[in-house]
Every structure is written in structure tokens, then in C-alpha cells.
Simulated assay, not measured.
Amino acid sequence: MHDPPRWASILLAPATLVYATVVECRRRRFDAGTGVIRVDAPVISVGNIVAGGTGKSPVCRTIASHLLRAGNRPAIAMRGYRAGATGVSDEAAEYASLIPEVPIAVGADRVATIASLKDPPGSIVLDDGFQHRRVHRDLDIVLVDAVHSGLDRGMLPSGPRREPRSALRRADAVVVTRASKIDPVLAAEIERHHGRPPLAWTRHAWTGLTSHHRGVESARPVSDLNGRRVATAFGVGNPDSIRRSIEAAGGIIVHDVPVRDHAAYDADRVSSIAAVAEAAGAEAIVTTLKDWVKIGRHVDRIGAMPVLVPTLEIEFLAGKAGFFEAIDATIKRAASAAG
């Protein structure tokens, strides 16, 4: 998440005013219930109020896994940004790799894609759903990044926020992600706009690495990064947090390949990444699973350079019990309402 320079923000101020007006008109329409559709399953939405990554995918995965363990049959509904020629988005491929038992409904019209699921789901986890208000939700969770909350910035396009700070009052719960500790200043800021303190505080924890080397996949500890010279390629919304995690594990970043969010990888790009990594003296390439599901289609272009993919999980610093109680209560209320 990056803000434009001050001079650009000034030039973009008229566009920001137009954008804010459109957002306000849209808010009033949905607040009145116009165009909101209920689907035949309880919906748990996970979203944010900023453009860029806040950790929606691992939180959605955590919720879906919890529902599976509880005997529910969740599905994940998502827009599927830049699905490309395969018709499968990088996030959908990531979900399919990590939780293959959970069906994925992908498409801009999430009402239609949910209805098209082969088997009726027991619940829906709506990925990036806070602004997708056409789908009625039974629990609305907003994520706030502890490092770059965006609460002190402007609205698009002069700043990163998709909505005004007051939109947080629409959420049922706010969960802080990428936190290293409970921050009372951020907690007070969230409570000021949300009306309640954050429900939970979480961090992104690397539990291991998956190594891909000459067609062989193996599990490796995070400690394998210690003292290792690596090149990086991150087509995600917040790559800085991943770089910090590499350095915290003792990895030495010798080259960073600039990649935009949801970037496509063809054979030539993969060859180029491998070549620049080797030229920089890297001993391995570190990328995300979201990137690997695309890079791996051209694994023959990587050569002898190992590719390391961190395994990312959500770890709770505070509020774990309350978080899952909110999930369970939502499913229970829906079951009671259904009779």
C-alpha cells in the first residue's frame, strides 16, 4: 500500500472528491436495502477499507478451516482478480492448493457464482466482501493492517482508502492483522471510528517453507533462510511485510524483482527472474504461494535455482476465543432462523 507523492495528491484532489461522492451515493442506496440479496447460506464477509493487502486470504482460510472442523460445509466466494487465460485467479488457485475440500465460487457477480455451486454450501466466506454489499452478510469483518492502517490517509485516488473511516461503523468486528503487539494508539483510533475496540489482534506467522528444486517439492524449516542470499518476487498487495519477515529470519535479500499485484507470469518472465537471481548471486528465489501457482507452470525455466515458498498462518495475539465465538454464533443464529 503506497500513497502518491504530495504534489500528486493535490492534483488528484478533484478526482478524490468525485470518488467520495460516488461512494456516498452507493452507501445510501445499500443502507436503504436497495439491491441487497440474501443467498441460501449464512455469509461471513472478510474485507478492508484500503486498497492493497491486509491478509484477507489467510483470514478467510482460517475461517473456512474452522468451519470445516465444526462440521459445516463452507465455500469461499471471491471476485477473482486478473484470472488470465486459465480462467483461474491466483487467490483461487492458492485456496485450491491449501484447502482443496472447500469449493471456490469465482466471479464478479458473486450472487450468481454462489448459486452455481454444484452442492449447496453450509456457509459462505466472502473474500474481499466489505464493499461488495450486494450480498447480504450475517457477519461483517474488517481487517486493519497494524503497519499501514490507512486510517490516517485519504481516499482513492489521492490516498489508499476505498471508503471513509466512518464506514468502520458498518462492520460487526474489526480484526487487526500484521501486529507485533497490541497498540493502544491504533486501538483507540479504531474504536473512535468503529465504536468498539478491535475484536482480535493477529500476526502473520511463517510456520515453514516449501522448497521447489528440480521438480522435487520438500518441506523445510524457516531457519533455512538464515544467512542465505535470496532474490524475491512478490506479486502481492503488501510485499514489504514479506521482505521484513525474510530479514527477521536471517535471509539476505540481494535482489528484488518488481512485480505488480496479481501479476501474470509467462515463460519469458520466469526465465528472466531466474537469470537476474543468478546474476545477483542469489542462492534461492523466495516468492509467495499466490505467485508460485503461476510461476510453477513454467518450472522448467527456473533451472537449478531453488524456489522457497513460505507457509503463512494467522496467529492470534489477543481475542482468539472471541473471534471464533463470533463465527460460531453466526452459524448458530442462521440455523435457528432456518428452523
Rank of each mutant, 00 (worst) to 15 (best):
S89H: 01
D140V: 12
P100K: 13
K56W: 13
A85G: 04
P121S: 09
L68S: 06
L139I: 10
V59H: 04
V142T: 12
E91Q: 08
E94Q: 15
A108C: 04
P74N: 10
H132T: 11
A77P: 02
D109G: 10
I99K: 04
N72W: 04
V102R: 02
R82G: 09
D127I: 11
G150S: 11
D128T: 04
A105W: 02
I141M: 10
V106Y: 00
V135I: 15
Y95C: 02
G122Q: 10
I104C: 03
F130K: 01
E91H: 06
H66C: 02
E101A: 14
I114E: 00
A85C: 01
H66S: 08
L151C: 13
V59D: 01
G71M: 12
D140Q: 07
S149N: 12
A83C: 06
H66A: 13
D128S: 06
G129Q: 08
V142G: 06
R137L: 08
D90H: 12
A115F: 06
K56F: 03
D152V: 12
D145H: 04
P74Y: 03
R137M: 01
R134K: 15
D127V: 08
S97A: 15
H66G: 00
D145A: 09
D109Y: 07
D140G: 06
I76G: 00
